[in-house]
Amino acid sequence: MGMKTVEEHLKIQQLFSIRMGDFQQFEQDFYQSGYYIDDQEQATYGYEETAHQDDQHVDYNATQPGVFTPSMGLPPTDLLYTGQMFQPAKDSGTASSTGTDTFEDEPPLLEELGINFDHIWQKTLTVLNPFKPADGSIMNETDLTGPILFCISLGAMLLMAGKVHFGYVYGISAMGCLGMYTLLNLMSLIAVSYGCVASVLGYCLLPMVGLSTFAIFFSLQGVLGTLFALLVISWCSLSASKIFISTLAMDGQQLLVAYPCALLYGVFALLTVF
């Protein structure tokens, strides 16, 4: 039994040695290039040294062939746009570059809107003094700022007296201006505009505003109130006729122009008194 065991043990060793030889042969056949782990470590070490040496001599500022750089394809530096963004260059032919178009040279806002307080004051003084000669150049302007203000004031005074007559004031004013416009164009050789007629009749409404203010505190339904109303009507009609004949060169026809004006202002007086 002991001899058989030894023989079997020897046979096992021989088989193991044969298998190990076959495995080494397979390993040599698999790595035909002769590349082993030891060679890999040596190659890696040699690459690191070579790369470190190359980094010391590389000029990164130089343009490498086949490599894209941001400066490629751009124009020279002297041809680049050097202006500021969103700020276009000024044209030498414009008025802003010459300095003539400035905020100081622009007219005031009220003057652009056609509101001139000096002319309004001059026209108001002309109405308040019916015996003063009127300046036809001033009254020839179609200024409606004063007339609108006086119409609103008349309606406000009537409202304070307990009379809501804003619609009557505006309606009678429009119809009266249209009638006087037609009449003056028939009587005068000089054509007159509707705006000029409305401006003159509106400014001459100022004494009627004073009558409506007086009606707030005192009753005008009596002899004294009637006389006062007739005086205001004469005042308004005389001022309006004076301005019309001065503007339209209608000498000797003041009474003919004052009559229709008195009829118009008489209607406003009726609204104020009653």
Rank of each mutant, 00 (worst) to 15 (best):
M175F: 11
M175S: 15
M175N: 12
M175E: 14
M175T: 11
G176N: 08
G176W: 00
G176F: 03
C177E: 03
C177R: 04
L178V: 07
G179F: 06
G179H: 09
G179W: 11
M180E: 04
M180W: 04
M180A: 10
M180L: 14
M180N: 07
T182S: 09
L183P: 01
L184C: 03
L184N: 06
L184T: 00
N185A: 08
N185G: 06
N185Y: 03
L186W: 05
L186A: 14
L186C: 11
L186Q: 04
M187Y: 03
M187N: 02
L189I: 05
L189P: 04
L189E: 13
I190S: 14
I190Q: 14
I190W: 00
A191W: 10
A191D: 05
A191R: 15
A191T: 14
A191S: 12
A191M: 09
V192W: 04
V192Y: 00
S193L: 08
Y194E: 06
Y194C: 01
G195E: 07
G195C: 11
C196D: 02
V197Y: 04
A198F: 08
S199G: 06
V200Y: 01
V200Q: 00
L201I: 15
G202Q: 09
G202N: 05
G202Y: 04
Y203W: 05
Y203D: 04
Y203A: 03
Y203G: 05
Y203C: 10
C204R: 07
C204E: 03
C204Q: 07
L205G: 02
L205D: 04
L206S: 08
L206E: 05
L206V: 02
P207Q: 12
M208I: 15
M208Q: 13
V209A: 02
G210Q: 09
G210H: 12
L211M: 14
L211Q: 06
L211F: 02
S212A: 15
T213H: 10
T213A: 13
T213V: 11
F214R: 10
A215T: 02
A215D: 01
A215W: 07
I216L: 11
I216K: 15
F217W: 01
F217A: 13
F218Q: 12
F218L: 07
S219L: 07
S219V: 01
L220S: 05
L220W: 02
L220A: 04
L220I: 01
Q221P: 02
Q221W: 03
G222C: 06
G222W: 11
V223I: 14
V223S: 12
V223C: 08
V223H: 11
L224K: 02
G225M: 11
L227M: 09
L227Q: 12
F228S: 13
F228A: 12
F228T: 13
A229T: 14
A229N: 01
A229Y: 02
L230Q: 06
L230W: 07
L231H: 10
L231T: 06
L231G: 15
V232P: 00
V232Q: 10
V232F: 05
I233S: 00
S234C: 06
W235Y: 00
W235N: 01
C236Q: 00
